[in-house]
Write a protein that binds this DNA or RNA. Structure first.
Lengths: 379, 379
DNA sequence: ATTCTCAATGAATCTGTCG
DNA sequence: CCGACAGATTCATTGAGAA
């Protein structure tokens, strides 16, 4: 399968004298710009709209440094209703340019994704999956008042119900995933380091640049070579760069001319890859870390169990939440193990033991059994 | 802290002659039954509402490919609209019985969760997290036309914005998780095997029974012992069984009397865990405040003592009134610590140190000793 | 060259209490 | 309701610069 060349891949000639170039970034409002595109001309839409984060004050890290938040004007909306109107408008514009067989992806967080999903359904899109981007290195919750917000949600939808001819490269994905079906949760790292575009001062050029690996999975799973990919919120052109790399065509829209220019430069410099060379769906290795709480959830240790050291000199009590208590003090198996010995640190997995039929056994043996189970389940 | 006994734990006596039992399953419509409960009486709501209203009754039209597009859209609107009305009704009823500090969890899939989330926001709930239940053993996708649907989504929300006193047992969760804060994605197995309730024929009794481990995380993370947990769609009583096990109280509502009966039997047979394994413990946040002046009054620090940071780069002088001075500036240990570092804020307890026989020690160790004394004195 | 330490940072609706 | 302030709070990764 050859790489798309300029002009060669245009399938539906229209009245314009010259065929559209294969890679375009339009500067302007996405609804207005999409309205100028021919109807039913796009094979795949990927959209990363504003999330409407509704942030208020500053957030400081424990070291008192300030978190560089998304405080741009484009992410501010007067109300949920205003956000809904905005969402309805761009989704309708996108729908018009989608071929009947096209599908659409939208990424968001809990701030906006529920509204996007509801409107998708109300407009008659047909949700095929919601897919979780599970971040391997999310920003922590600095104040300890919520769970670490460690994922974002993507919705994958067909233009209408009963769409039966949409592209889903099931066999190829499965073959590239150790012959296991690809799941609806994808573990991927944030876009950092070299990949992250910087401005002249070494600061991030765009506040929400997505990792290319994420886009590669989207494009590889739900489009074919030479397909036309549309990104209405093109930003610094991640979608376009990956589309070109993977032999697809691309049209993006970006309101901010600085971002649009950066996107054009970036896409220009991309060299398409041989199509067969990318296999991004290798199974994510599970984090080696096993929380002690998981053994309790699994029923391997009961709350109320007494832990003791190898010489039965100290004991601690297993709590339902996976912490352990020694007298009035509650903490992790590691902290309490350290406390029991008067040390700064301790490996609770090897220090603490439980009574078994065959005598005292370190809880590390339970962890090993748990891991073995997990490995089996993954097969 | 004893295990909750029938009636003994009711905290707000009301006009009814007998206190409500600690574990109840009401048979009936959840909106009607919640309306009978006292307002602001519930600490935690967990709801697993029906997902597929559009597949019920006369709206069910599988594989009807010849439907006119307009009619089709109208059907969906009607169907979604009915689901929205239903959702709004039960959420409002739940909201009334929630204490101001209460939080609510809803679990769903892409069929319904976007509508639930939108309505939650529209009703003024405040989303704290969306949490992904990542299934370690999901059912495969048999047709190979989509990604394996390997997760469900939960929304965790406070009753209103700026709710600052909701329960989140951050420290305990972290201690049970290898001393790392718990993320918004939870990997847990489906409810199968022994745990899955069966009917007389060995068939599963309920189509969507949730694993107890999932409910255990929900209840352990966002409630305290003796709290009242409400489940408006009680089913076969998983929430109630786990609540009882963990020393919480419970009220559930279930429309189907077969399920309700099964739930009652199930909850009756649960034995609560030993109180010590679920007992709350004092976190750093909840520890009693100690004014720095109290250490001086107690003789633990003398006026005139020199304080310094861990690297002995700056020094401050302890005053008799409990303030400290740095050059001409006088202020609290925190203010002066911030000043010394050129920061906006500082925890003076950990920043400032005193010389001891064994070297430099943070004044926080003095505070800990003071608190220990106070504890002893209180006994 | 190699290893170690320290600093920086990422779509974040991130405190509680008292006056 | 607002302001002041005590004081509690972070994980994975990259990269620079020191040892």
């Amino acid at each position: 399968m050859g790489v798309t060349r300029r002009g060669a891949s245009v399938r539906t000639p229209r009245s314009t004298p010259r065929p559209a170039p294969s890679f375009r970034v339009l500067t302007g409002d996405c609804v207005a710009e999409m309205a100028k595109l021919p109807a039913a001309s796009v094979d795949l839409v990927f959209a990363d709209p504003p999330y409407n984060l509704q942030l208020q004050g500053d957030l400081k890290r424990p070291d008192d440094s300030r978190v560089d938040a998304v405080d741009d004007a484009w992410d501010k909306f007067e109300s949920f209703s205003a956000y809904d109107d905005f969402t309805r408008a761009w989704l309708l514009a996108a729908r018009r340019v989608m071929k009947p067989s096209a599908t659409l992806w939208v990424i968001g967080s809990y701030h906006n994704i529920f509204r996007v999903g509801t409107i998708l359904q109300d407009l008659g899109f047909w949700i095929l999956n919601d897919v979780i981007w599970r971040k391997s290195n999310p920003m922590p919750n600095f104040r300890g008042r919520r769970f670490t917000n460690a994922h974002e949600t993507m919705i994958w939808a067909a233009r209408e119900p009963n769409a039966k001819n949409y592209t889903f490269n099931y066999e190829a994905l499965k073959a590239g995933n150790e012959d296991v079906q690809v799941r609806s949760d994808w573990t991927l790292a944030l876009c950092t380091g070299e990949e992250r575009l910087k401005d002249g001062n070494g600061k991030k050029l765009h506040p929400t640049q997505k990792p290319e690996a994420l886009l590669a999975r989207v494009i590889l799973s739900s489009s074919r070579p030479d397909d036309l990919v549309l990104d209405p919120f093109c930003g610094t052109g991640t979608t376009g760069a990956v589309a070109k790399k993977l032999g697809r065509r691309f049209v993006g829209v970006e309101r901010d001319s600085v971002y649009a220019t950066a996107a054009r430069d970036r896409i220009d410099s991309v060299l398409p890859l041989p199509a067969a060379s990318v296999a991004p769906f290798q199974t994510a290795r599970e984090a080696p870390r096993v929380p002690f709480a998981a053994l309790i959830e699994r029923g391997m240790v009961s709350p109320g169990t007494t832990l003791t050291d190898a010489k039965r000199r100290v004991t601690a009590l297993v709590r339902a939440d996976g912490a352990v208590s020694l007298g009035d003090t509650v903490g992790s198996i590691h902290r309490i193990g350290a406390l029991a010995q008067g040390l700064d640190a301790c490996n609770g997995w090897t220090f603490w033991h439980v009574e078994t039929a065959t005598g005292l056994a370190p809880i590390d043996t339970l962890r090993a059994a748990f891991r073995a189970e997990q490995m089996q389940a993954a097969e």
